[in-house]
Amino acid sequence: MKIAVLIKQTFDTEAKIVVKEGKVDPSGVNVIINPYDEFAIEEALRIKEKVGGEVVVFSAGSDKVTESLRKALAMGADRAVRVELDGVAVDEGVVAEALAKALGEGNFDLVLTGWLAIDDRSAQVGVRVAEILNLSQINMVTQLELADGKLTGSREIEGGMEVVEVPLPALITAQRGLNEPRYPSMKGIMQAKKKELKVVNASDLNISAQPKVEVKDVFLPKAKEAGKIYKDDMAAAVSALVKALREEAKVI
């Protein structure tokens, strides 16, 4: 079984975010593997441990991303590929095409990734890669079974569960609950630096997509203000409250 896992490096969930010149300031912020992508890595490793094969991790980004790929290797992935995006204007569509092209000739039976990244939360890349490579897909999977060359994935839907079966090759996006990711073992950490980590330049991948999405601004939510209490006589208070709801909060 050849399994690919697409991962994204994101800010630590506990990091204090500082916005500078319309961008999140990366200096001094701890980075982690997107937690949903960690579920994907763990699932890939479990499938490999059961049926054998190879797990290859892919990530698009600068050299900084190497750290996260090494961690995936330390967890047990066999090799890694980094798609260098230097000088390429990107949005989710471009990243998806870059990753799809990098996966290209790999003949993967299964591609796993997290259903969204916790930073921009756009939930685009996995599904787009599946579309580009014409793979069947199940999204937001909380339980996955492999039998007779078919995958059965369970996903939560409004008021219940949906169980979906797809033939291989397929792409699965992971939701919380799929598994509990392992810690990299000491031996895994020691072996990680000996494993292959290939760099592919996006400029060599003949990407045709152009970014269609432009980020206009990034800002922090307004600091929460203290609540306001209207305590004149009842009629005046209600009237002032309704006025505030209409004119300040603009909710009615």
């Binding site: 090494r70 961690k71 810690y183 990299p184 000491m186 950490i189 020691m190 990680a192 630096k193």
Partner: peptide, 15 residues
């Protein structure tokens, strides 16, 4: 070094 950072990170999470 990179390996030591990864090691400490792993042990810290475990702890």
């Amino acid at each position: 070094n990179e390996e030591q950072v990864m090691f400490v990170d792993m042990v810290r999470k475990f702890c």
